[in-house]
Write a protein that binds this DNA or RNA. Structure first.
Lengths: 149, 149
DNA sequence: AAAAAACCAACCAATTTACTTGGGATTAAG
DNA sequence: CTTAATCCCAAGTAAATTGGTTGGTTTTTT
């Protein structure tokens, strides 16, 4: 039940862009540096996000990436699905095209995996980039107050 | 967010044993046949479950495996943790020994992974082998009634 | 004694992961 | 109009993981 670095890096990168939303295009290089991710590797991940319509790219000098939708319209689940594939602990409960399984009694285990899939989807779809940015602001605020204690 | 066949097969095998709880040792061969799993591969998986104390083995002819605890005392989460490792979408929110992460702002993403981990754990720890057996009995009952419609 | 079973160790091919290499195309700034 | 910054693309790759297989040994019942 692990995420690969694709999903992990992808969410971090999208969060990085969201935190600078409205400041114009954010270069891949700067994201890679701040997030400590290989630039060329991140490039491949963000290519997927671009093709999926989550970010838009601006080419040329001073170019970079911007969110294709508002931060509150992009869910963590959207990012994960692009980079990790459909959310499904096993293929027979795939969100889109569930794989046929012939074992009749396996429906019992299938029920578990479906429950698990829904639980994962619910968490990931309940959090938007806007939520993350707000959380970051709150964390920063708390930290600032630490000096006064 | 996929399970490997280890977890999937492991749960199916344990369910198979649980369904025959009280009937004496269940041979690996019969489990492998019923569940359509490679016998030698399943052997490796069940070796882990034995070492973890979830099943006990009886050697020799007519030997096999029995549950080491009652079906209602074995959670799906127990099986998954043995075969798939600790439940944690990323290492920095590992249940036992969380990996240190130095990125300060990453705490925002970390919070997401922790929430996801808890959600997964909750589902898997809320289902026991006894629950699965009961579910199977209910399914069978429903199916039997289908003939009268 | 023979058969049935668990136990064990090593090997393996295919796939996936997490990159790297080496470019080319586009555009803003000087 | 050149240059530098930047995105875009294709291919290669070492290491790890997956999902097994092979070939036994040991234990116990019949």
């Amino acid at each position: 039940m692990k995420l690969s670095t694709k999903g992990e890096y992808g969410v971090r990168a999208m969060f990085d862009i969201a935190m600078r939303h409205g400041e114009g295009p954010i270069s891949l290089k700067s994201i890679a540096e701040r997030q400590d991710i290989s630039e060329h590797y991140l490039e491949q991940l963000i290519a997927g996000l671009r093709k999926a319509g989550l970010v838009r790219s601006i080419r040329g000098a001073q170019g970079g990436y911007i969110l294709a939708r508002e931060p509150d319209e992009i869910k963590v689940g959207d990012i994960i699905r692009v980079l990790e594939g459909p959310i499904a602990p096993v293929d027979c409960v795939c969100e889109e095209e569930p794989e046929k399984c012939n074992r009749a009694e396996s429906c019992v285990t299938r029920g578990i995996w479906a429950k698990l899939r829904d639980s994962i989807s619910n968490v990931l779809d309940s959090i938007t980039l806007a939520d993350m940015c707000q959380e970051a602001a709150e964390l920063k605020h708390k930290e600032a107050n630490m000096f006064y204690i």
